[in-house]
């Protein structure tokens, strides 16, 4: 959380101040949880797509070599 605040702070110092203020109330706490859930979902989709990408590539090579024999 501190790291996220820091990164955002690099982008916009005003937001950091507002964030530190809101992070103490309930909305501020909840939004970090939703954010982390979102990031986890994206990471899941991303790595799944990466592995699918690799699988298709390998399958392609295998099929090409199989038929070109």
């Amino acid at each position: 959380m501190a790291l996220a605040t820091f990164i955002i702070g690099l982008l916009n110092p005003d937001t950091t101040k507002a964030l530190i203020a809101t992070s103490n109330n309930e909305v501020g706490q909840n939004i970090y949880i939703v954010l982390i859930i979102n990031l986890i979902i994206w990471a899941g989709i991303f790595f799944f797509l990466m592995s699918l990408d690799q699988k298709v590539k390998k399958l392609n090579e295998r099929i090409q070599s199989l038929f070109n024999k």
Binding site: N12, L19, L35, N38, W42, F46, M50
Partner: peptide, 22 residues
């Protein structure tokens, strides 16, 4: 050849963080 895929991974993560905090 996959550089843009990794870039997308990071880019989307930045968008998600920014959408919630920025």
């Amino acid at each position: 050849e996959n550089w843009w895929k990794y870039l997308l991974g990071v880019w989307m993560a930045v968008i998600i963080v920014a959408a919630f905090l920025f």
